[in-house]
């Protein structure tokens, strides 16, 4: 009887663990789209430190273009991973670019300092967002290849390993 109970409990515990693993695995809400994209629309903005920021300057690099905002909790969670990736892959040809959808620069500047963001950040415009198909929910990130083509679009918080794996492949080409 005890042996039967042990076995049943083990099975139930195992199933519970698997279910939790599935829930945790899917708790990042990203939706990836990776077909039907064309060239990444070029733009020129002033970044929050006043420098010119043009997407075309990064032709030849793999670009991760992140639409985010200081008030967006999933975006905040992603930023430290982007900082880490810029540190590790910047020398190999990765450039992360942040486009904030905040209504002003002030909170973005403070956030950039607090999170020690090591990549350029500018406040976006509705026109730019529309050029990228509309940014009607955050975060949204685009991976752009060295030829300036959009390779994929991620809507929602995305597992950093997913970004990293895609970036590594593009950097190896």
């Amino acid at each position: 009887m005890i042996c039967f109970m042990k076995r049943t409990l083990l099975i139930v515990a195992g199933v519970a663990l698997v279910l939790i693993w599935i829930v945790l695995r899917h708790s990042s809400t990203e939706q990836k789209e990776s077909a039907g994209f064309g060239p990444a629309p070029d733009f020129t903005l002033a970044d929050v430190s006043g420098k010119k920021l043009s997407l075309s300057e990064y032709r030849g690099k793999v670009v991760l273009l992140d639409f985010w905002a200081t008030w967006c909790a999933p975006c905040k969670e992603e930023v430290p991973h982007f900082v880490d990736m810029q540190n590790r892959y910047g020398g190999r040809g990765l450039q992360i670019v942040g486009i904030s959808m905040d209504d002003g620069e002030k909170p973005v500047r403070a956030f950039q300092q607090e999170f020690r963001m090591n990549y350029p950040v500018a406040v976006g415009t509705a026109q730019l967002a529309e050029q990228y198909g509309g940014v009607l929910g955050l975060p949204i990130a685009f991976v752009i290849d060295p030829q300036g083509r959009i390779v994929s679009r991620y809507v929602g918080q995305t597992d950093p390993e997913v970004f990293e794996s895609e970036i590594q492949k593009l950097l190896r080409r």
């Binding site: 008030w71 959808m101 209504d103 976006g124 509705a126 967002a129 509309g134 940014v135 009607l136 929910g137």
Partner: peptide, 9 residues
């Protein structure tokens, strides 16, 4: 929500 989202749609 934020103005930039409203302006788009």
């Amino acid at each position: 929500g934020p103005r930039l989202l409203y302006t788009q749609a």
